[in-house]
Structure formats: structure tokens, C-alpha cells
Design a protein around this nucleic acid. Structure first.
Length: 681
DNA sequence: GAGCACTGC
């Protein structure tokens, strides 16, 4: 019966071909909405193009429905489909929505896969996953045979993982003529993708956003925070009801702006509506982040409606969507990561955003009704100083992990690997050099056994290395904790108003040998106290960091056991063993005291100071640091005391010292070497 | 003696 009916060209099937069950009423209701999406009419065209081409570029703005409709349409053709997303929340929520639209149970025909949460099965035809997760799958199965179609969504964001997948796709498409790839992107750089995948046809679908009127300032603003405050007050006093979203660059600025807006609003009294001012940045505790979803305040005594005003970082550009925003105020700036391969340092710099970002920010005003966007820069600045698109992440990152990943996927000629934007040769050289010193690559640049072990862990190669070495130093229990703690946001909270109390709380955990041991002791205390939220808040510890660390530690432990490594811990010589073990991975990050509190990094001879957040009670001769940051000064942060002899024992190859600049540290190491040689005789 | 855009495995 069903067969005959589904063959009929006119009547739509009443039973779901995937489950053989009749469609629910919810399905019918959702189908109506789906049919009104701009992308709906393009689906057949897409199917036909796929018969002729291996790669297709699909360009569509927010609201076109491409993320939900394209993958499910292809899965409906009985193809195994993977669709990547840059963020885990998106992968999970889109999968849930699509399962509902397809009238199947989430985790069966439609599933998702993100870190810590695998929701798919044998029967899964369509899987949404984070781009990083697909990369992990590709490390195991470099030709991705488990899929017929791979969709790279949000390609315009050019995340590190998506960029590597682009290059990988080029290789795999040669080996698998049956594989199809769809690159889905917002506009602006679709032609770049088309050029990269030579001959790939471009399919465009319109978006569905309300119009947003854009205003520029007439003259350049000197103080953009003050300008933002002024603009918010003007909107609040003179514009129609609707919430305001302001884009600034960071925590401090945002808190200042919030204070000033509240102060200004108070001056106006009842002549304007109530204004709810909410800061939004990623390091805020989740409870504070939830405030952005609170409704705008009601009318005041003069019956003027209230509104809310959210002052946010880039987090509101893509990661968090706030409905009801009608006005956007855009500073035109954001903090961006930059990488200096010569100094081997990643730092954050306030930089102008791209035109693509400016457009994205403006679009945040048009999600529910027509909106307005006030740009705190001139049209001339926009035209001449803003780049078309944001510099892809791969050009701004340390590539140690990336190079290792490529090697594991069997890419042996890195020079020939077709990057959409090739990274600086110096950055690649740095990565190869460090991987060689870690023992992950041999002198020919080939992957070693240790290298493939290192690549198994979801960690930076240096951290994986110390985790593996921890077996030898009988401190794996502690190093598992340390790796987890170094992978999460700084767990120590220090609110300005209670700085001293917070410092005292932190002092309870301080370990005399350094910040690494302090991190371990915080985690131990957290577990000992039953992982309690109230314990965290009482001790100025960020509970989110601790929960994340516990989860990561569990994941690392499972992997650790699976690889046949042994969890050992020995009390005798514990601190020394831990610090030696850290040296086995971070020997390139050591500094020697020059005078009083000034240090010089050994390899680059950069003058640095130990960051004031350290728990070290004095300034030792030699330290190992976890990160080198450029802020008001050059700082090294997360620092522990080491004995320079360990360096010679653990990384003799690196400390041959030929390429090192002359310094007190180098001379000390040289004389240590001499006396060691003498003792051996 | 002071500061951490945002993701992701």
C-alpha cells in the first residue's frame, strides 16, 4: 500500500521512509514552515548539480535555512552525510531541530558528535559535528569512508579546523571519486572558495533578515567607549522601543561602559524609560550570562516603555544570539589573536574588525524586525581601513598541533599541502622544529611512535608529551590533573571590589615550588570538598573552570588507560618529579634571572617579569613558564622553580646551545655541562 | 604588583 502511494507523483508519502511509521502531525506542521524557507526551492537544483560535480559552493545568509534543509534533503536520498559546525552548541541544537523536522528520534537517523557527547548510532544517516571532531575522525580514517557527502558549514568563519579540512578534502577528492563536498558560506568570500575548488559551481540563496539601516559617525571618535555611552543614551532617549546591543573589545571596557551608562541614565530620571544594562563576555559566570535573556523592563511611572542594553564582546557576533535587538552600536574593534613565530608568542591585540564582521554585527539588529546600526567610525574608515574578511585563524596561530595532525593524516609533503591561505614558512618551521625536539617527528620529519601517541590526546603536543612522560616520573595522577587545569580558563576569580579577600583565598592553595603545583592543589581541594559550588564561590574559584577540568581529566584518563599507560603516583620527591616531568615538554619555555626581578627567556633573550598573579614567594634563579603574554609589560605566567641540570638531562639535544644568544643563563648552563662532563670521567 | 576576544579536540 505505502509503496504504491509513495510512487504516485502527486500524493506526498504519509509514512516516513526512514522509520516506516506514519508521519506525526508535528511533522506536517513543520513541513509547512520548511517549505517557506528561501533554500527550499534550491534543493532540487542542488541535487542535480551534485550529479555533475564533486564540489559545490552554497552561499546563503542567515535565515536561508541552509544548515537545516540541505543536510536533511541529502540524507533523505539515503546518503551518509556529515555536516560540520564551528561551535558545539550549534551542532547539538541543529541536530535536535532536524531530527524533529524529519520525524525521527535524535541519535538514530539524525545525530550529533561533539566533545564529551556522542549521540549517534549505526543507523545514523545524518550527523552534525564540530569541525574539530571531524578532524579527529579524519586522523583515524583519513579518507573519511564512513561518509558519502561532507558539508563544511559556516566556511566563511575560516576556523583552524575548517581550514585544515579544506586542504584534506582536496586530497581525499582525488582518492575518492564518489565523495561529494558542499561548502556552505555567507557571502563575501564565496568566490574565493570557488577559485580554491576549481570549477565548483556556485549556488546562491537569499537570506531572510529584516532591513538594517546603517549610520556612520561624521568625524572619527577618539574615545570609542565614551562614544558608545553617548550613542546608547541618544537611542534610549529618542528612538522607538527595542533593545540595544553594543560591541566593545573586552571585560574592562565593558564594565566601564556599563557603569557610565547607568550613571547617565540616572541623570535623566523618569523622563526616559527604565534601562537594564547587562555586560556580556565569556569569562562571566553562566548565571550572569543568563541575564541577557531576561525581558526588558516594563514602563515607568510616565508610561514610557523600558529597554535592555547589552554591552558585549565578540561573543554576541556569532556564539550567542539575543532576540529583540533592534539597535546595534558597533565600535568597529575587537581583540584578535596574533602569533609571532620568532618570539613564539601568541598575544591579543585590539584591532579593526573586517567588513564581513561589521556586516554580521549589523545583522544582529534585524532578526525580529527592521533595525538600526550605529557604527562609531566614519564611512571613509570603513571603506579604506577595514579588510574585506577577517584574517583566517591559521595565519594567526601557533601551528604545532596542526602540523602533527597533518602528519598523522598521512600528509607527508607539507610544502605541497594546498592551504587556502598558506601560513608563513617561519611558522611551519617553528612547528616542525618543536615537534622534532619533543620527539614527535624524527630528523627526517617523519612521525615517530611517540608522535602518534602524542597525537592521541586532545591537548597541545607539549602537554601530551608531559602526560606520556609522567609514567616514567611516577606522577601521572598529578600530571593528568595539571593537563586538565591548563586546558581551562583561569580558575582564580578576582573581582575588583574584593581583590584582597580573593588573594587570601588563593594563598591557601599556594605551593612554594610554583603555580603548576598550585593548580594541582586547587583541583585536589575541589575534589576533596565534593565538587561543591558553594565551596567554589567561598574560595573565589570559578566553578565552571573546575567542572570543565574534571570532565577533561576524565577524558584524558580514559585515553591514558586505553593506550596502555599506567597511572602512578609516588609521594616521595613528588614536587621535584612533577616539575622534572613538566620540563620534558616545556624545556623551550625557561627563563633565568638577570637581576632582582627581571628575567630573560633563554632562547629569545627577551626581558620578562613574572606575572603578579604568581604564588611564588620569592624570585628563584631558574623558572619554567607556561605562557608568555604581552600586555602592559612582557610577562611570563604560570611559573615554577626548576633546576637547570634537569634541562640538560631531559633535553640534551635542545641544549646544545649553539643558536642561543649570549646570556647569564647560557653561561651557567655551559659551566654546568663542563662540570657534568668532568664528573663522568 | 595586574589582566584574560572567541572557539575546538
Amino acid at each position: 500500500m505505502e509503496r504504491r502511494r509513495s510512487r504516485s507523483p502527486r500524493a506526498a508519502p504519509t509514512r516516513n521512509p526512514l522509520t516506516q511509521k506514519p508521519y506525526s502531525s508535528n511533522y506536517t506542521k513543520l513541513l509547512k514552515d520548511r517549505k517557506s524557507l528561501p533554500v527550499y526551492e534550491a534543493l532540487l537544483q542542488l541535487e542535480n548539480l551534485l550529479k555533475l560535480h564533486q564540489v559545490i559552493i552554497l552561499q546563503g545568509e542567515t535565515g536561508s535555512g541552509k544548515t537545516t534543509q540541505v543536510p536533511q534533503y541529502l540524507a533523505g536520498l539515503q546518503k551518509k552525510v556529515a555536516c560540520t559546525q564551528p561551535r558545539r552548541v550549534a551542532a547539538m541544537s541543529v541536530a535536535k531541530r532536524v531530527a524533529e523536522e524529519m520525524d525521527v528520534k535524535l541519535g538514530e537517523h539524525v545525530g550529533y558528535s561533539v566533545r564529551f557527547d556522542e549521540c549517534s548510532s549505526e543507523s545514523t544517516l545524518l550527523k552534525y559535528l564540530t569541525d574539530g571532531m571531524l578532524l579527529r575522525e579524519a586522523m583515524k580514517h583519513p579518507t573519511l569512508d564512513q561518509y558519502d557527502i561532507i558539508i563544511l558549514d559556516e566556511a566563511h568563519e575560516r576556523t583552524l579546523a575548517t581550514d585544515i579540512l579544506f586542504g584534506l578534502m582536496k586530497e581525499v577528492l582525488q582518492k575518492r571519486r564518489d565523495l561529494k563536498v558542499i561548502v556552505m558560506s555567507a557571502t563575501l568570500n564565496a568566490d574565493k572558495f570557488q577559485h580554491y575548488f576549481e570549477g565548483a559551481p556556485l549556488l546562491s540563496v537569499p537570506g531572510r533578515l529584516f532591513p538594517v539601516e546603517v549610520f556612520f559617525t561624521q568625524v572619527a571618535e577618539e574615545d570609542y567607549v565614551a562614544a558608545a555611552v553617548k550613542t546608547v543614551m541618544q537611542i534610549h532617549a529618542f528612538e522607538d522601543p527595542g533593545d540595544i546591543l553594543v560591541f566593545l573589545t573586552g571585560e574592562e571596557e565593558i564594565e566601564t561602559a556599563c557603569r557610565n551608562i547607568k550613571k547617565e541614565a540616572n541623570k535623566y530620571g523618569e523622563s526616559v524609560g527604565k534601562l537594564l544594562v547587562i555586560p556580556l563576555y565569556s569569562t562571566l559566570p553562566p548565571s550572569a550570562q543568563q541575564k541577557i535573556f531576561e525581558p526588558a523592563p516594563g514602563p515607568n511611572t510616565k508610561n514610557i516603555p523600558g529597554r535592555k542594553c547589552i554591552i558585549a564582546t565578540n561573543i554576541a557576533e556569532t556564539s550567542l544570539t539575543i532576540d529583540g535587538v533592534v539597535y546595534v552600536v558597533d565600535s568597529g574593534l575587537s581583540k584578535q589573536k596574533v602569533y609571532n613565530p620568532r618570539m613564539r608568542v601568541e598575544s591579543l591585540m585590539v584591532s579593526p574588525i573586517s567588513k564581513a564582521s561589521a556586516k554580521q554585527r549589523a545583522g544582529r539588529a534585524g532578526r525580529t524586525q527592521p533595525g538600526k546600526c550605529y557604527r562609531l567610525y566614519t564611512e571613509e574608515t570603513y571603506r579604506s581601513e577595514l579588510q574585506e574578511t577577517t584574517h583566517p585563524e591559521i595565519l594567526r596561530s601557533n601551528l604545532t598541533s596542526v602540523v602533527l595532525t597533518l602528519r598523522v593524516m598521512g600528509i607527508d609533503n607539507l610544502v605541497k599541502f594546498d592551504f587556502m591561505d598558506p601560513p608563513a614558512p617561519e611558522t611551519m618551521m617553528r612547528a616542525l622544529e618543536i615537534l622534532n625536539f619533543l620527539g614527535a617527528l624524527d630528523d627526517e620529519g617523519d612521525l615517530t611512535e611517540l608522535g602518534s601517541l602524542i597525537s592521541e590526546f586532545p591537548l597541545d603536543p607539549e602537554l601530551s608529551k608531559i602526560l606520556i612522560t609522567s609514567e616514567r616520573f611516577k606522577c601521572s595522577d598529578d600530571i593528568l590533573t595539571l593537563c586538565a587545569m591548563l586546558s581551562v580558563q583561569n580558575p582564580f576569580l578576582r573581582p575588583k571590589e574584593s581583590g584582597e579577600v580573593a588573594d587570601k583565598a588563593k594563598a591557601q592553595f599556594a605551593h612554594q615550588d610554583g603555580d603548576h603545583l598550585t593548580l594541582i592543589s586547587v583541583f585536589s581541594a575541589y575534589i576533596r570538598e565534593g565538587q561543591r559550588q558553594d565551596w567554589c564561590s567561598h574560595n573565589f574559584i570559578n566553578p565552571r573552570s573546575m567542572r570543565a577540568a574534571a570532565e577533561i581529566r576524565d577524558q584524558l584518563l580514559v585515553k591514558f588507560n586505553k593506550l596502555g599507560l599506567q597511572v602512578l603516583s609516588e609521594e616521595r620527591g613528588r614536587s621535584e618529579n612533577i616539575r622534572k616531568c613538566i620540563c620534558s615538554g616545556f624545556f623551550t619555555q625557561v627563563a633565568c634571572k638577570e637581576k632582582s626581578s627581571i628575567y630573560a627567556t633563554l632562547k629569545e633573550k627577551q626581558c620578562v617579569a613574572i606575572h603578579p598573579s604568581t604564588t611564588l614567594a620569592f624570585r628563584p634563579e631558574w623558572v619554567l613558564y607556561h605562557e608568555y603574554i604581552l600586555t602592559s609589560k612582557n610577562y611570563i605566567r604560570t611559573v615554577s622553580i626548576i633546576n637547570p641540570i634537569w634541562l640538560l638531562e631531559l633535553a640534551p639535544h635542545y641544549f646544545e646551545l649553539e643558536g642561543f644568544p649570549d646570556s647569564q643563563g647560557k653561561r651557567q648552563l655551559e659551566s654546568l655541562k663542563k662540570s657534568r662532563a668532568k664528573n663522568k670521567k
